[in-house]
């Protein structure tokens, strides 16, 4: 067991956890932040993507104990919550463009989408629909056929 301290969605958290605890398990079981999902065990589906120190990472393939002092952002941290709380433009875009059906892959899609928009803007690159599709290599959706996910990210890119 090891004590780990990190900042999750702006709040300091700590836990005394077995060393083999994955970040996804720490979020879901210890912090009960169940918006981060587990869709595979070979780190390919991307339903578990969160941001660590500003970068998207697969939380199912990261040990929580290795993240002492890290800043973690999950789907729950994109909006402050409560009635009438403003949603992140990416969350709004997924609703506006019907970018989700069953919703299971959606948290990972949104966290991945936010990163790609930020990164392309920072680098001054054009986030074309082809680029979005390539960037989604590590995120699998079984419902939408990606059409409306790509549209959602394109739309959010104009509003972020």
């Amino acid at each position: 067991m090891t004590t780990v301290n990190m900042t999750v969605n702006g709040k300091a958290v700590s836990g005394n956890i077995p060393d083999n605890t994955l970040l996804s398990e720490f979020l879901r079981e210890n912090l009960r932040l169940t918006g981060t999902h587990i869709g595979c065990d070979t780190s390919q589906c991307g339903a578990c993507v969160v941001h660590i120190n500003g970068m998207p990472v697969k939380s199912c393939s990261t040990l929580a104990v290795s993240l002492d002092g890290a800043e973690v952002l999950t789907i729950e941290g994109l909006t402050k919550g409560g009635k009438d709380a403003e949603l992140h433009p990416m969350q709004v875009a997924f609703n506006d463009n019907h970018g989700l059906q069953c919703g299971f892959c959606t948290p990972g899609m949104i966290m991945t989408g936010i990163d790609m928009v930020k990164r392309y803007k920072a680098e001054g690159k054009d986030l074309t629909s082809d680029a979005i599709r390539a960037e989604l290599e590590g995120n699998i959706c079984r419902c939408t056929g990606y059409h409306n996910i790509v549209k959602s990210i394109e739309d959010a890119a104009t509003k972020m």
């Binding site: 932040l33 918006g35 999950t74 729950e76 994109l78 997924f94 609703n95 989700l100 299971f104 959606t106």
Partner: peptide, 12 residues
């Protein structure tokens, strides 16, 4: 139904 899914509040 989207709001709960886009904010991580879905209950699976």
């Amino acid at each position: 139904e989207d709001k709960r899914f886009t904010t991580g509040k879905g209950k699976y």
